[in-house]
Simulated assay, not measured.
Amino acid sequence: MTLLAETPELWDVVFKMPVERLRFIEAQAQKAGPAVLDVGCATGMTCRALREAGMAPIGVDINARFIDTARTKDPAGEYHVGDMRTFQLSRASDLLICLGTTFSYNLTNRQVAQTLRNFHDHLRPGGRLVVDVVNAIAFTGAQPFRRLSRHTFNREGEEAVATIRHGLDLRAQTMTEQVTWRRKGHAVRKDPAESLRLLFPQELAFHLEVAGFADIALLDGWGGDAQGFSGRRLIALATRPG
């Protein structure tokens, strides 16, 4: 398990919620309906914001520590531990969101298909899906691939420095990340490497169609740009017909 997976408080420092992403999700919920399902909700940051905006979100995450933290921070909320491929809830949602790196942990086509089918089954007819993935196009351009990056975070006066080694497996269409953490008063921590699936726009659209979705739109950012597709994030919107 990685340090971030073990430490929900540090996760909240590292992964701030972009305002433009929240506004985008709120706008989609206004169109689709208030029953929102956040798959990969982590510590419930997005669910809490949506509840404050008058929505009725439910959060699901595979990490029990994150769910415990979400329940502590949002006692009125509803949170469940579950795998995105196999979780089962009784409520059919108006809008299902899967943001950040969550969906990219589907490393094989079989896993992608299983997850999208489960998403389809948890939406009401006419319900909407928003899924955010790592864009493979960003790794095919002329810009050199960064093998090493360094990031500094501060939590309550404690500085944490993360050095990330990146790798690419072009055959598997995956990117690997291995993080080494340095914190004052702590031993150097080297996390296990994690892999993320890279998906091309039309590849993602095909998987959505096979899973039964329609009205698919592909975006290059939370501002709604559908032109460049050169950034690392690829956003898809789709509808369960009915």
Rank of each mutant, 00 (worst) to 15 (best):
M1V: 11
M1Y: 05
M1G: 15
T2S: 08
T2H: 10
A5S: 13
A5I: 01
E6T: 13
P8L: 09
L10N: 13
W11F: 15
W11T: 04
V13D: 07
K16G: 12
M17T: 14
M17K: 09
V19M: 11
F24Y: 11
A27P: 05
K31D: 13
A32P: 10
G33Y: 07
P34D: 06
A35I: 04
A35Q: 15
M45A: 15
C47P: 01
C47Q: 03
E52I: 05
A53M: 10
A53I: 06
M55R: 15
I58K: 14
V60I: 04
V60S: 07
V60M: 01
D61I: 01
N63C: 08
I67M: 08
I67N: 03
I67W: 04
A70F: 04
A76E: 15
H80A: 11
G82E: 07
D83T: 05
D83G: 08
M84F: 03
M84Q: 09
T86F: 11
S90N: 15
R91F: 09
R91G: 06
A92T: 08
A92Q: 15
S93A: 13
D94S: 05
L95Y: 00
L96K: 05
I97E: 01
I97P: 01
F103L: 09
F103C: 02
Y105D: 05
L107G: 05
T108A: 09
R110Y: 10
A113I: 02
F119E: 02
H120S: 03
H120N: 11
H122I: 08
L123A: 02
L123R: 01
P125N: 08
G127V: 01
G127L: 02
R128I: 09
L129I: 09
V130I: 14
D132E: 13
D132Q: 13
V133E: 05
A136P: 00
A136Y: 04
G141Q: 10
R146N: 10
L148G: 07
S149H: 12
R150V: 13
R155D: 12
G157L: 07
L168F: 07
D169Y: 06
R171A: 12
A172H: 05
Q173R: 08
T174S: 01
T176P: 03
T176Y: 00
T176M: 01
E177R: 13
R182G: 01
K184F: 10
G185D: 03
H186Q: 14
A187D: 13
R189F: 12
K190R: 15
S195R: 10
S195N: 10
L196Y: 10
R197D: 03
P201N: 09
E203C: 07
A205W: 03
F206K: 14
L208H: 00
V210I: 04
A211I: 00
A214Q: 09
A214Y: 06
A214V: 12
L218K: 07
L218C: 08
L219R: 05
G223L: 06
G224R: 00
Q227M: 07
F229C: 10
F229H: 02
S230C: 13
R233W: 00
R233N: 04
I235V: 03
A236H: 03
A238Q: 06
A238W: 01
